[in-house]
């Protein structure tokens, strides 16, 4: 299989979506315009002295009720899925779970012993290499206040505007979860970083969506869907793998976005020390002592490895690929603690 076969395979199997017909388009447009119509002045119910609000969600409300009716019969799933590696709640996050964890626990302590670097932002220079594709160089600036800027060069970074996060400041939540890990029991710390990707309800500025009715699919399709979904949900190994994948992705995101902050790096090392599927090896690269931290929980032999400075925990590289083969991605990181105003000033 070549690099691009998977994309072709995915595109070939995209479920068909006929173009919207004129009637559906007209209906959706009219509904939007109706929604956009200025709110009428409230009419006061004199007897009850209650204002009667304009009905801006009259189309959506029945669907919410329909959803409730349909969904009420769906079995509520088991909730807690955090793997046993997180402990039983209340355990010391610094307590080594196994020999694998020891280097990370020691590193976390070492990071905490360093004085915090001055500055209010983390500047990350990245060099991405993907076989068969042009390499990519980019700078990311993560300000501690949550603003995020990116550009190919420092000059362009100065002119960049902050990328807005339309879905709930995910990165900020991951960084905050990592920074808080030091003071939390292991289970809670893991849970917080795992959940950092799920927005807490719908963002205020998006309003509460009127969810539509359940799809009408054939009995055969429903049965197939049930089987696939059940296979995933009822297989402890696959469930644990999925949770671990989210855990790994979120800790990695926190380690990058909070790379300049010692509290975040220490928290990430403590979090990774709780994982049963993370393997740690020591090495020397370009004369520097490093740790290779490898996540092994992905299916079919795929692994990702973070390389961090053995003294500071600062990320220097990430590789991904299947064991025994050349990496399919390599990213080099150069991290600097800075003042955002110094980087962004014209």
């Amino acid at each position: 299989m070549t690099e691009h076969d998977d994309l072709t395979w995915l595109r070939d199997r995209q479920p068909p979506a006929p173009s919207p017909d004129a009637a559906a388009t007209a209906e959706a447009r009219a509904a939007l315009l109706e929604h956009a119509r200025p709110e009428p002045l409230a009419v006061v119910d004199v007897e009850g002295l209650r204002p009667i609000a304009g009905d801006r969600r009259r189309r959506a409300l029945p669907r919410v009720l329909a959803l409730a009716a349909v969904a009420a019969v769906v079995a509520v799933l088991v909730t807690s899925l955090l793997p046993a590696g997180g402990g039983s709640g209340g355990g010391d996050l610094l307590a080594p779970r196994a020999a694998e964890a020891a280097p990370l626990v020691l590193l976390a302590r070492n990071i905490q012993a360093h004085p915090a670097a001055a500055g209010d932002a983390t500047l990350v220079r990245l060099h991405h290499e993907y076989p068969g594709e042009p390499s990519v160089d980019r700078l990311d600036l993560f300000a501690d206040d949550g603003r995020y800027f990116y550009a190919p060069t420092l000059r362009e970074l100065r002119r960049a505007t902050a990328l807005r996060d339309p879905v709930g400041a995910h990165t900020q939540r991951k960084v905050a979860a990592a920074a808080a890990a030091a003071d939390l029991p292991a289970t809670e710390a893991r849970e917080r970083i795992v959940q950092a990707d799920s927005p807490p309800g719908f963002p205020d500025h998006m309003g509460e969506p009127g969810l539509p009715h359940a799809d009408e699919v054939s009995a055969e399709e429903q049965a197939a869907g049930r089987r696939t979904s059940a296979q995933l949900r009822n297989d402890p190994e696959r469930r644990a793998e999925l949770v671990e994948n989210v855990f790994w992705g979120n800790t990695m995101d926190a380690l990058i976005a909070g790379a300049g902050r010692a509290d975040v790096r220490a928290g990430v090392m403590k979090l990774l020390a709780t994982s049963r599927t993370v393997k740690v090896t020591r090495d020397t690269v370009a004369g520097r002592d490093v740790l290779h931290i490898t996540e092994t929980s992905f299916a079919d032999g795929y692994t990702e490895t973070l390389t961090v400075d053995a003294d500071t925990g600062i990320l220097t590289a990430m590789t991904g690929g299947t064991a025994g083969r050349p990496p399919t991605v390599k990213v080099d990181y150069d991290v600097e603690r800075v003042r955002a105003a110094d980087v962004l000033k014209p």
Partner: peptide
């Protein structure tokens, strides 16, 4: 909240079909 709540649901798996799911 739970990551498995966001995993492929019955409805999404039905829609995708067995291969993609």
């Amino acid at each position: 909240r739970d990551p498995v709540d966001d995993a492929l649901s019955r409805v999404e798996a039905s829609r995708l079909g067995p291969e993609l799911a």
